[in-house]
Amino acid sequence: MTFIDQFKQNFIEENRWKYILNGLGVTLRVTLFAVLIGIAIGFIVAIIRSTYEKTGKLKILNLLANIYLTVIRGTPVVVQLLIIYFVIFSSVRVDKIFVAIIAFGINSGAYVAEIIRSGIMSIDPGQMEAGRSLGFNYIQTMCYIIIPQAFKNVLPALGNEFIVLLKETSVAGYIALEDLTKGADIIRSQTYSPFVPLLSVAAIYLGIVMLLTFLLKKLERRLRSSER
């Protein structure tokens, strides 16, 4: 069979390209919303942890945050996904996309939290003192002065985390969610020709990752130039 034939068989016949396109849509949606949840959780956890480290306040919240970080980073994301789908949501009918977003968001939040925390801790303590001496309270100083600088410093690491997350969502097939990877796998199981669908999907992931990397570099350069 020529490549053209293979292409036709895997993508054109029976409109199989739809598995890829729909799968891509699912993957992007899951990644995007999981990223948003991850950032929200990450910020909250990071602020709790760095506040505790710097002032000794928020002891109980800090303990909870530590448990969350330990559990999430100490177990595989596939297991977390399966637990959330089959254990936590076992008795309710929920959209699998929703479950995936929650699972990957909670997972990503743990990594984002540590990235942002390291960013906050790297800011010169003089910045907090300057903010407080003007009359800003702790939260205001965090929001106006510390976090914007910390965020800028950790942007490369955050971008990296999101690229990792995009690729990690490829295990969503474990709960039979038809994401990009699962779409290719369905085609493979129908046509019995693994080569074209799997390599195509690999190329699509690679393309997205390269695009994200490019955009990230650009953003980084722009942020840096604003300080010089």
Binding site: D124, G126, Q127, E129, A130, G131, S133, I145, P148, Q149, K152, S226, E227
Partner: peptide
């Protein structure tokens, strides 16, 4: 308050 290290907000 004025500090030895200025502590201006660099961003």
């Amino acid at each position: 308050m004025v500090f030895q290290q200025f502590n201006l907000f660099p961003h």
